[in-house]
Design a protein around this nucleic acid. Structure first.
Lengths: 207, 207
DNA sequence: TACCCATGTTGTCAACGACAACATGGGCGC
DNA sequence: GCGCCCATGTTGTCGTTGACAACATGGGTA
């Protein structure tokens, strides 16, 4: 088969309906929010019958779960890139990670919402958690580097990473909810990051 | 009228349907999540017709907005209580505020979700923002106190308050989303709070 | 006393998620 | 090279829901 529609080779009827659904769902999500997504409207948009999506996602929730997974993967990519671009200094890496997270949140607020929605199916939850943890690992690595250099106070790197992550996540949440009183998210984030870095600094040897 | 049902005086048919709807909606929210709330099921539970709720909430969203308002008011009460119980020291006040916030978040995770959902009607948004800002004011007051005592670094108290709020909010979000790896939320919160307080400390006069 | 409006009711509609029964055609085993 | 099977897609249907319109009622007030 494979009809040409709009320059893109479509191989529906035995092809890539699943990906097409995800792509269209993400568009819909960005413009109309989670409630704007309906399996039936997705099917209509893609020219398939209303029951076709069920072959790929047993549930509406299953589709949202898949969307969340896409989001986490993309987020992870962004974080990984931030690390490589940040050079070796642990604090620059942490700053880069924080900014990358905020950038993602502001660029894809609705997607972030789906990613952190507590409604995922149990199986999906496990997978999502695993991917989320990968991002956290990048933070922990940077913290560990800081500790080895004697610049960061002692403590379980994972714990400290979670702490930093929570702070950045909080800013991102407020930013996407437009609860910042017009304060630029970047400013608040930088300030919070510096504050935390200062708070996490190893005690300077007395004298 | 006023029929006695279950020991509570009900004056439906000219009485308190609105409050009853809110109360029942909050129960439903706690047990089944936002999607578990349907205007029709609420009406059924309260023994009124399916269209009765529309007299009090033009929309399903309007009901959720009202629920959010209830939540913010209750949160504000908790925060205010925390301040009075914390004594005069600014840092104790901040700790008390942070813990009160986390306590609320963990006790009412779904409600918090509704409170921060970005879908509110515009009129409701304004009111919600006003109430939310009131809580933030308590934080700013404590920061201001710390600054006057020379213990907190310079800077707009509202800005610093927002910074602290974001951090605490982040922890609360992760906690309600069960994303803490089993780490007790209280521990993480305390740790983050201490870190931020340390980071916000005024530079000690050289020497 | 009579009217009006707040509140509640019945009826209806379109959209949706979910499910069941059925169709089809491509790839794989033989 | 042929035919069968299953992945994928279709049609049909059901119950639920939110929203709206037209109608009922009764309490407070002019």
């Amino acid at each position: 088969m494979g009809a040409r529609l709009g320059g893109v080779t479509r191989t529906y009827h035995h092809g890539n309906l699943r990906d097409a659904l995800l792509a269209r769902a993400e568009e819909q999500l960005a413009t109309d929010g989670v409630d704007g997504i309906s399996l039936r409207s997705l099917a209509r948009d893609l020219g398939v019958s209303h029951a076709a999506p069920a072959r790929h996602f047993r549930d509406k929730q299953a589709l949202l779960d898949a969307l969340a997974l896409v989001g986490f993967r993309r987020l992870d990519d962004g974080l990984a890139r931030a690390v490589t671009e940040a050079g070796g200094a642990f604090d620059d890496r942490l700053r880069g990670l924080g900014r990358a997270y905020a950038r993602f949140a502001i660029a894809h607020p609705r997607l972030l919402e789906v990613m952190y929605a507590g409604k995922h199916h149990p199986e999906a939850s496990a997978e999502l958690l695993a991917v989320a943890r990968r991002g956290l690992g990048l933070v922990a690595d940077a913290v560990d580097t800081g500790q080895r250099a004697g610049a960061v106070r002692d403590g379980d790197p994972d714990h400290l990473a979670l702490l930093l992550f929570a702070a950045v996540h909080g800013v991102a949440q407020l930013a996407t909810g437009d609860l910042l009183d017009g304060e630029p998210a970047a400013d608040l984030l930088d300030d919070l990051l510096e504050t935390c870095l200062r708070g996490l600094a190893a005690p300077t040897p007395a004298g």
